[in-house]
Design a protein around this nucleic acid. Structure first.
Lengths: 157, 157
DNA sequence: GGTGAAACTCACCAGAT
DNA sequence: ATCTGGTGAGTTTCACC
């Protein structure tokens, strides 16, 4: 885990609200000079705390208003089978996220599609096509909330 | 759904790879002048296609290496109960995402915590504290893959 | 809609504390 | 480690196509 002082945390808070804020704005918001905030943000990126800067797209506005989470198991649940399925499903155009999990299922596949027909087709034509796929259970997603700011864990000092 | 021509789609592709690419880079990559790409990106944002620019944080590096998806039902499953729980759970510091779903469960809560103890405490101290929470089922997340680029649906022209 | 140039703002690198 | 100032890029506007 990376060391994060108050300034690092403040910069992360600001950038989570809007990842395109200028360095000068960041400096003003955190009360340091632009060169300091620039150096800190660069360090956060080099240390891998910041993995990148992503677009937040409205799936409905790009023609994919129907979202679902598809829980499934693969058979047999061996490493090779799991990894092959993971690579395959992550590259499908409908897929917007893949959780590899323990418990009742092996995968939760998050998809966004144009309509219910496309969802049904995805499940019965694409997924069920794969021989290793078993126990498919589809849940339609009504809403997906993502907190705007995620804080670092308190340190055990 | 928004109308997206080839240029809009190309700009969305570029921005999804790196939401902080400069306008000049976007213009060069898409073969238009900087003022054109600036105007297009602005339009995408005003139309709500682009909802914002987010940081991609490494949860492990901020002291929260353990992720889980907690499926649960609320009782009774009425609008008021569901909405109250949704608002409450979305604001917990452990929560990094909330899916409101149909099917076997009502919610899938995505959390990131420092260790297994914190996960266990979250489930039995926090969630179970709420009287409306029933049928809690926890899955540990080994891996969460998010495709770097998500394409708009093909239009039914 | 798209372009090109001008004015403004910013990122980035020094050098010093 | 942080700040102040300076220079080269980048952003943004606007008149024109």
């Amino acid at each position: 885990m990376a060391e994060l002082d108050e300034l690092d945390q403040a910069l992360l808070r600001e950038l989570q609200r809007d990842a395109r804020r200028t360095n000068r704005e960041l400096a003003a918001a955190t009360g340091v000079s632009p060169s300091t905030s620039l150096e800190r943000v660069r360090s956060l990126r080099e240390r891998g705390v910041i993995r990148g800067y992503r677009l937040d797209l409205d799936f409905a506005k790009i023609g994919r208003p129907v979202q679902a989470l598809i829980a499934l198991r693969v058979h047999p649940p061996k490493r090779q089978v799991i990894e092959a399925f993971r690579e395959w499903v992550a590259l499908l155009p409908e897929t917007v996220g893949v959780f590899v999990v323990t418990g009742g299922e092996d995968f939760l596949v998050h998809v966004a599609v144009p309509d219910n027909d496309a969802l049904y087709a995805f499940v019965i034509d694409r997924l069920t096509q794969r021989p290793e796929v078993a126990d498919v259970r589809t849940s339609v997603v009504f809403e997906h909330i993502r907190p705007r700011v995620i804080a670092p864990a308190k340190r055990n000092a």
